[in-house]
Design a protein around this nucleic acid. Sequence first.
DNA 1: ATCGATACATACTTTAGGGTAAGTACTTGT
DNA 2: ACAAGTACTTACCCTAAAGTATGTATCGAT
Lengths: 132, 132
Amino acid sequence: MTAIKNESTIQENKGFALEKCPVTYIMEKIGGHWKPIILYHLLSGTKRYNELRRAIPAITEKMLIQHLKQLESDKLVVRIAKPVVPPYVTYTLTPAGEKLRKVLIAMAEWAIEDSKDNSLTIYENINASLLQ
Amino acid sequence: MTAIKNESTIQENKGFALEKCPVTYIMEKIGGHWKPIILYHLLSGTKRYNELRRAIPAITEKMLIQHLKQLESDKLVVRIAKPVVPPYVTYTLTPAGEKLRKVLIAMAEWAIEDSKDNSLTIYENINASLLQ
DNA sequence: ATCGATACATACTTTAGGGTAAGTACTTGT
DNA sequence: ACAAGTACTTACCCTAAAGTATGTATCGAT
C-alpha cells in the first residue's frame, strides 16, 4: 500500500552491524557449516591435508580446500608445504586460531549437554505419543 | 541415537558426523548467519519482536521471524504472546539457550581481541551486564 | 474513515554455498 | 607399464538460504 519499505541501503546497515556487533564479526570468520569443524580438528594439533579429510569424512575435497584457504587468508591457520614428492602439506592454527579454543570447547560442551537433555525430551515425547 | 540407514553415502557420513562431532551438532542449532546474533541480543534479557528488529537493523523481517521460530522449535527461546491488541510478543532464552551465554561471550571476546590485533576497528567493550 | 502500530505470513526472485565428477603433476611400488 | 598415493584445481550443476515486496488482523487515535 502506501507503506514504503525504507530499508535505505542494506549495505549501509550491514556496515553498521559489522562495526558494532562482535558476533557478526566472528561469524564472518568462522561462520558456515564446515569452518568450526575444521578448526575443532586442528585444536588437537597440526594436521596433514589427508588427515583432515579422514577426520571429517562428510566433507568434500572442494569444501575442505576452499575453507582452508579462507581460514588461511583470515590468519587463523598456517599452511606449510614441504617441497617434496609426494606433497607434504600441513595445516596449523595460528595464535589467533588457537585463541578460538575457548569458543570451540564451549561449543562442544554445550552440544554434549544439550544433546543429552534433548534425547530425554525425545523419550518423553515418545512416551506421550504412546499414551494417547 | 541409532543412525538412520540410508543408501546415500553422504547422508550416511553426515549421520556419522552428527553422532560423533559435537561441533556439527551445535552448528545445526545455531549455525547460519543470524542465529548467533539474535541469541546474543537475547542475552541481555527478554525482548519484544520489534526490539529485536531495531537491535538488528540489517535483518529482514522474514529472516528474523524464521530464525525465531527455528530457535523456538529447538527449545532455545520461548515465545510468549499476550492476547492483546496491538500484539505483545516477547522472546526469552530457555535454560538451554541461557547456557549458550558462555559460547556467545567467548565469541564476542574473541572477535574484539581479533579485530584489535587486525587493527581494523576498535570495538566498544562488551556490556558488562552480559558477563555476569 | 483512514492511519499507524504490532507481529507476523507468503509468493517470488536472487545469490551463495555446497555437491559431482573429472583432471593435474610427480614419484614410488609391483 | 601402470596403479596408487598426495594435494590440490576446475567446470558444471543444484538447492537451500536469503532478500524483495507485498498482504493480514486488530484496535485506538486523529
